[in-house]
Design a protein around this nucleic acid. Structure first.
Lengths: 348, 348
DNA sequence: CTGAAAGCGCTTACAG
DNA sequence: CTGAAAGCGCTTACAG
């Protein structure tokens, strides 16, 4: 059966590239050229094909395209991020950028401590022939995963607080500044005995945020004594324990900055267990600005990261080549966190 | 080039069904039969094919299979659920069930108030030829969406607090019981002036939970006067406003039950704005048991729903036909919420 | 129980 | 600038 002989698309069945070719009186190859925005099509021909596409409501089948291209139209988000808010906001941002592109988002949580991590990711990426992969911390900081993706020749974008890779593969957040703002805020409120509760040392964000905090304190002439520099683990319980340790010191701090909000809640809990009144007896500043930060008592002053924008920018980098944009020339606005001032930190 | 002549798979290239056929000395159709677990293969042949599959590390290409099957290996989660914790937990549960099946999860947030809702969903489901769709509330309660999925002949599972559909298409949560437990708990603590703050009336969960609460109060001989029955909107602000109204009454309640945790936080906020001390002056019980419920002060007593299990069960229903399980005979354990007792509600 | 042919809906490589 | 042929890696429908 030759192309020209084929029946018109039955109603209820999707139009195919053959239907468009027949209606537009061209070969399917030419239709393919139009779909793929090849420059080698006469304007008149392109218009005729486009008309047929619109008339038939033709949408190319991603499975068939993927099979021929040897690449699917799926973007994978691989993450070990424990915060649901972070994950959902980032998914939303990625979807913002993917809208209208025909790409879909496939989610793939993982655990960096799993012995099968690499095998799992390889299976996922290879089997689906992913269009690309987006990774937030901390899996974005795992070089063995990156090596694997390079070996599989799969485009990827890493989100991290340090430029670990080439610009087209990175969305960098300036976590140094976020923590520095928190430090300045506390000093400006008159605090001098200010403590820091860090997150897991294996997270780059913890190191960068800690440094920003210390540097900014120093700028303002305030020192962070070792006893005020506590290693936490990004969990509520670790924040609570750190606060108990700090508040037991002969000279306890008047303010505590924690490198995420969960630990800030732990600090507040510990303070109350010791009979302190908040924020009168202790100022607290967190990092993340979770939705509940505005809803607890006292409202938590916290550093906000534009997670959704970060997801969108990561996806845009992945899409750049498809859109004919040189990824190297993509605008690289620095991601700057901002301090959301509420009532958990007050004048001392 | 006949199948038998084809070169062995180059290293670095994935083995195909042709490679397996050659090694096992059978036609590719027979390999296909083995992949698809057809019973019409001699055991000896099957073993030989399986051996070749293992030797070559063959994994069928989902795109090629999908193209031939006219159905992809993608499960869509379509949701308008605003709670990040709910969304992430449900995704996790779905992925638990999908593990090892070769299916992947594609996420698709939506808005029921969008004028393009049906067009968007149609485009998504039709274009991707989804294997199936899973929907939590409230989009799961939208009959126009369901009609569309039926028209597109796409399997789906709805999660809701009422059996809106046939068993194989439903995961039903017993929200009546969850709210009833909260009511009994408050009465058992000695409360008699107990108020209810509902969620959006357009959500079935709000209606069912409200009914469970009222019914259980009545069982215990406690009445819910109209002034104690407030319509909220599942938001922090609506909880706060409701509490201000309730606490302004000549006979204010000694306990307030809110149909989600966000509103419980709003109630706590209002109480503090009025100078009340919690939980001494007001008991509060929420619904959802968000992670922060355990981390705020006072710790929030709340009703917990096993969201992850619900996601897993929904995905298992979708997989049943593929696994040769009769969906009608699938076990249908009732999803029972449980009350997590903490310190926000105390003896009056 | 097994297989050769045709097809799923696209693209690549080669011509012209 | 355009097209006929071959192919991507599978399955369906039909034989035997």
């Amino acid at each position: 059966m030759s192309e020209r002989d084929s029946q018109p698309a039955k109603s209820g069945k999707r139009a195919t590239i053959n239907d468009v070719a027949r209606v537009a009186q061209v070969s399917k190859k030419t239709v393919s050229r139009v779909i793929n925005q090849s420059p080698f099509v006469r304007e008149e021909t392109r218009a005729r094909v486009q008309e047929a596409i619109d008339e038939l409501g033709f949408v190319p089948d991603p499975q068939a395209r993927g099979l021929a291209f040897r690449r699917s139209f799926l973007v994978g988000m691989i993450y070990d991020q424990p915060s649901p808010t972070y994950v959902v906001n980032m998914q939303q941002g990625i979807l913002d950028a993917l809208k209208g592109s025909g790409l879909e988002l496939v989610v793939h949580p993982c655990s960096r401590t799993s012995p099968t991590l690499l095998k799992d990711i390889r299976g996922f990426v290879e089997r689906q022939r992913l269009f690309g992969v987006i990774m937030p911390p901390s899996v974005s900081e795992d070089e063995t995963v990156i090596e694997l993706l390079r070996e599989l020749d799969t485009p990827y974008v890493r989100i991290a607080s340090i430029a670990l890779d080439q610009p087209q593969n990175m969305v960098v957040t300036n976590d140094w500044i976020g923590a520095a703002e928190a430090a300045r805020h506390l000093v400006d409120l008159g605090h001098r005995r200010i403590a820091l509760v860090r997150g897991l040392a294996s997270f780059r964000s913890s190191v960068v945020r800690g440094q920003g905090f210390i540097d900014a304190l120093k700028e303002r002439g305030v020192n962070l004594p070792p006893a005020y520099d506590i290693q936490g683990a990004y969990t509520f319980d670790s924040g609570r324990e750190a606060a108990h340790a700090l508040l037991s010191l002969p000279e306890p701090p008047t303010a505590i900055f924690t490198l995420n909000d969960d630990m800030a809640l732990g600090v507040m809990q510990a303070a109350r267990e010791r009979g302190l009144e908040l924020p009168r007896d202790l100022s607290v500043v967190g990092y993340d600005d979770l939705p509940m930060a505005a809803h607890i008592w006292p409202n938590l002053t916290s550093v906000r990261l534009p997670i959704r924008d970060m997801g969108r920018m990561a996806a845009e980098k992945l899409l750049a080549p498809m859109r004919g944009v040189d990824p190297a020339r993509l605008q690289q606005p620095e991601i700057r966190p901002s301090l959301v001032v509420r009532r958990s930190a007050i004048q001392v």
